[in-house]
């Protein structure tokens, strides 16, 4: 990258390191950090949306819908989440291909499951075997995002379901006394108030989501774990200009520090949001804010 990097063998110390850390492969690692952030940026709102849908379904008066919502919430408890990750990636992939197969090749007469193989017609393959490599990567990433959103959506549904029930019932009754319909009361009274009750659970979930991002590696995405293993392994002079011993322990130490910093910053930001949301709420935290620091002594007494 830098001009003095032309002949790595002659470099030493900090110059060598600065060249080493800016090789093309290391750029892959830095891009992978971006992948992780992108995953978080897409998954968090998607999971919240799934969670909202799940919680609303679980509250529904229509029985089958309520069973579906409750089932969705319940199924992720009791089973290791990593099993879900491994399961959903294959299951979703096969599900999509099966649907496309039904639409695109209606006159296909062979069974789809032949012994140990899952065979759909060539036109139903996702992505098409003729499409460029980047499509395969995007599709893999898309599957990973969908899997994360499904699993975390169930967690979020659980949190939001609890938060909806935590909104004081009198608020809903008052809304109905004012002549609001169920739907209006739900959107205008419950939804704006539930966030303060949901925030502790959602903050926890965000931390859990951050800590789940290395699992991308298991889903076949070239994420930071992949690159740390790849770059850290022993390099001999035949194959690279920057030979080194097995440095994987240092790469994983760097990842450890990266995640610690990330969760720590998140903690600080979430504490701020919680403070902001508590403003004017009829909760202990809101009361504390109202009274200010002088009132705190009185409250404790």
């Amino acid at each position: 990258m830098f001009e003095f990097c032309a002949d790595p063998a002659s470099l030493a110390g900090i110059e060598w390191l600065s060249c080493y850390l800016t090789t093309g492969k290391h750029m892959g690692l830095y891009w992978a950090v971006g992948t992780v952030l992108l995953l978080l940026a897409i998954t968090a709102p998607a999971a919240l949306l799934f969670g909202f849908g799940g919680a609303a379904a679980a509250r529904s008066h229509f029985r089958p819908l309520s069973w579906f919502g409750k089932g969705y919430i319940a199924i992720v408890r009791g089973v290791p989440d990593i099993a879900f990750f491994l399961f959903f990636v294959i299951a979703l992939d096969q599900g999509f291909e099966w649907i496309r197969h039904q639409i695109k090749c209606p006159d296909w007469d062979q069974p789809i499951r032949q012994g140990n193989d899952f065979i759909v017609c060539a036109a139903a393959k996702l992505p098409l075997s003729s499409s460029p490599q980047v499509y395969h990567e995007v599709y893999g990433f898309f599957l990973a995002v969908l899997t994360f959103a499904l699993v975390f959506g169930a967690f979020a549904a659980n949190v939001l379901y609890g938060a909806m029930r935590a909104v004081p019932h009198a608020q809903m009754e008052t809304a109905e006394a004012y002549g609001m319909s169920h739907r209006q009361a739900f959107w205008r009274i419950m939804v704006p108030q539930m966030w303060v009750y949901a925030l502790p659970g959602l903050s926890n979930l965000w931390m859990v989501l951050i800590k789940a991002t290395p699992l991308l590696f298991l889903l076949g995405v070239e994420d930071i774990v992949y690159w740390a293993r790849e770059l850290g392994g022993m390099k001999t002079p035949q194959f690279t200009d920057y030979p080194h011993a097995d440095w994987r322990v240092w790469y994983f130490l760097a990842l450890l520090v990266f995640y610690l910093a990330f969760t720590h910053v998140s903690e600080i930001v979430l504490a701020r949001i919680s403070r902001r949301l508590s403003h004017g709420q009829a909760t202990l935290a809101g009361e504390k804010l109202r009274k200010g620091p002088r009132g705190r002594g009185k409250a404790a007494a």
């Binding site: 800590k211 590696f217 293993r229 994987r248 990842l255 995640y259």
Partner: peptide, 9 residues
């Protein structure tokens, strides 16, 4: 930090 990274490390 993630347990996954702890194992690797």
């Amino acid at each position: 930090s993630p347990l996954f990274i702890q194992f690797f490390f």
